[in-house]
Design a protein around this nucleic acid. Sequence first.
DNA 1: TCCGATTAAATCGCACGCGATATATATAAG
DNA 2: CTTATATATATCGCGTGCGATTTAATCGGA
Lengths: 138, 138
Amino acid sequence: MQLDNFLCFAIYSANHAFTRVYKPLLDELDLTYPQYLVMVVLWEKDDQTVGSLGEKLFLESSTLTPMLKRLEAMGYVARVRDKVDERQVRVRLTETGRALKEKARGVPLGIADATGMEPAEIVRLKQEIAALRASLLR
Amino acid sequence: MQLDNFLCFAIYSANHAFTRVYKPLLDELDLTYPQYLVMVVLWEKDDQTVGSLGEKLFLESSTLTPMLKRLEAMGYVARVRDKVDERQVRVRLTETGRALKEKARGVPLGIADATGMEPAEIVRLKQEIAALRASLLR
DNA sequence: TCCGATTAAATCGCACGCGATATATATAAG
DNA sequence: CTTATATATATCGCGTGCGATTTAATCGGA
């Protein structure tokens, strides 16, 4: 029953540490870390519904809706009701949003660098943690 | 440049997953997950300053002060100015706060269970992530 | 066709978490 | 002793995150 023995705390604090490392890199793009993750998902596949983004990011609409409105206000995405199913909102990159991908090109390398880990090691650790996440959500 | 390849996202989402697993267990204790972490630190060593808690938890006073006030309002801790150095606030467990440790006894086991991992494996992964955190903060 | 059930977002209230700043106390330098 | 500096918390504003609820649209069955 000691904090240093908690796997959860290691993850909790490592997550904060990542946020700190990302901050100066993302300031250049005027993005917060969660907003950056949304953009990554959209750069990967444009024109997704709020629900689809939520599934991939493990976030609720109550979190995404305000975030997406901020990204829209900044001119990076557009939110449009689906013509076929008006319940859904489709999120699309604007030209500016698409262009931002270039500016963000160097970010992952800067992060990988800060981890001080070998690429293969990063992949392995990432997979272990993804497996842990799956167990927890089971 | 794909979300699934991001170590940071694995950690980000695993952290959320942990929070979800903790929720039902901590509801019994009327604690949030970050509040629980504070209590763990205090159960380990009572009568600490805000700064000391912040060092161990990697949190700022701007985060801790409101949290500690809530824990105080719930009757789990007392906040008292240090007589010798009036700049410091000492955080002490109340009788109720100390007693809560017994009620929380089963929590770590429930969590370890949800990870689906062997104890030794948990320790190893925890150490790897703690090392990563150290690199990131460097 | 019509009405109840389901689904997708949005809204609301609350609790983090932090950067920037303010306030109060302690320390140091002369 | 006095003033400048440093330190410890607290405050403020903003952006997540989520559970609970609401709103609007769609689907399903009689």
